[in-house]
Simulated scan of single mutants.
Amino acid sequence: MTEPIRVAVHGAAGRMGRRVVALAAQDPDFEIVAAIEHADCSDLGHDAGLLAGIPAVDIPVASQWPGFADAVIDFSLPSAVDGVIANCIAAKIPLVMATTGLSPEQKNQLAEAAKTLPIVWAPSMSLAVNLTMKLAQQVAATLKDVPGGMDVEILERHHRYKADAPSGTALRFGELIAQQLGDDIRHVHGREGETGQRSRNEIGYHAIRVGDNPGEHTIVFGMLGEKIELNVGASNRDCYASGALTAAKFLKDREPGLYSMFDVLGLS
């Protein structure tokens, strides 16, 4: 029998961290070896399983990092990412970076760390989102020179508590589409007032914050006389937790490098 993957969850007391703990505990391919939180977290000492709404897993939430693990899954905040990267480098633990809203400097840190560690980083861990990104690339590449031109608009919906806008996933959709359309693409965030006629070389972004929506993205490709809309949405957060666990499985025995969910899905 194959040994289970020893996984440490950083941000274990958060909404996403709890779902990672819950799903990992139900999967025989995983063994939870650490549930990590910041030193001021009020849930320190609580059993990570009970905190996640499942039976106890005998792993208390702690601020100390483990000396060993086969992978760390990080669902936390951008302010914690520097420490996550440093601790993974120090302990030589592969990393699934699922935290969104990273700065350009932090993305550079990930690339540097990937010279010595295998790392999966993506703005979304959802398998469906990443497959839709691939479809969006194909649509853009096929229709970029369509007679009359093609307009691209990206609409994203998230819960009222989300701190960044537009979402990292929406921005990644735009980056991938722009790569197919050319170097002169402008990224426009919302519109107001007398904006004039829409430019042919722009991608528009629109962020909606409502209720408890866990995430929905619609990519509109508008042409003269017809349109294509790609829509992908989550009904709960488990798709992100499940995708992160799939990425952790991908990292097992992997060589150092910075991998994407396209790599995890075999879409590269």
Results as ranks from 00 to 15, higher is better:
120 V>Y: 08
84 V>S: 09
101 G>H: 11
73 I>V: 15
90 A>S: 15
254 R>D: 12
23 L>W: 09
47 D>Y: 12
152 V>E: 00
94 P>Q: 01
155 L>D: 14
252 K>F: 05
233 G>H: 13
92 K>F: 05
169 T>V: 13
40 D>Y: 09
217 H>F: 09
246 T>S: 02
162 K>I: 10
212 D>Y: 12
161 Y>T: 09
116 T>I: 12
128 A>Y: 12
202 E>L: 01
210 V>C: 01
17 G>I: 10
24 A>P: 02
82 D>W: 06
188 V>L: 12
25 A>D: 00
22 A>I: 07
219 I>K: 04
103 S>G: 07
259 Y>H: 10
139 V>G: 07
196 G>T: 08
158 H>Q: 12
219 I>M: 11
49 G>Y: 09
79 S>H: 10
244 A>T: 13
203 I>G: 07
112 E>P: 03
5 I>Q: 00
136 A>L: 11
252 K>M: 07
260 S>T: 14
7 V>F: 00
71 A>V: 15
203 I>D: 08
172 R>C: 08
148 G>T: 09
198 R>E: 12
31 E>R: 13
18 R>P: 01
158 H>L: 09
26 Q>I: 01
113 A>H: 11
124 S>G: 10
112 E>H: 12
181 L>M: 15
249 K>G: 01
85 I>V: 15
225 G>L: 10
43 D>E: 14
69 A>W: 07
123 P>H: 08
21 V>T: 09
161 Y>D: 11
256 P>V: 03
30 F>L: 01
260 S>N: 03
149 G>H: 02
186 R>L: 05
12 A>C: 05
180 Q>D: 09
12 A>Y: 03
193 G>S: 12
176 L>S: 02
108 N>T: 11
224 L>A: 14
235 S>N: 07
101 G>S: 08
200 R>K: 12
152 V>M: 00
218 T>K: 05
6 R>C: 06
87 N>M: 13
210 V>W: 05
60 P>T: 05
227 K>Y: 14
214 P>L: 11
102 L>N: 06
219 I>N: 02
90 A>R: 15
54 I>W: 06
124 S>C: 10
80 A>P: 00
78 P>S: 10
145 D>I: 03
110 L>H: 05
83 G>E: 13
21 V>S: 03
115 K>A: 07
113 A>Q: 10
232 V>M: 02
144 K>R: 15
240 Y>F: 14
60 P>V: 06
186 R>P: 00
141 A>Q: 07
207 A>C: 08
175 E>C: 04
128 A>I: 05
121 W>G: 00
168 G>L: 06
70 D>E: 06
73 I>N: 01
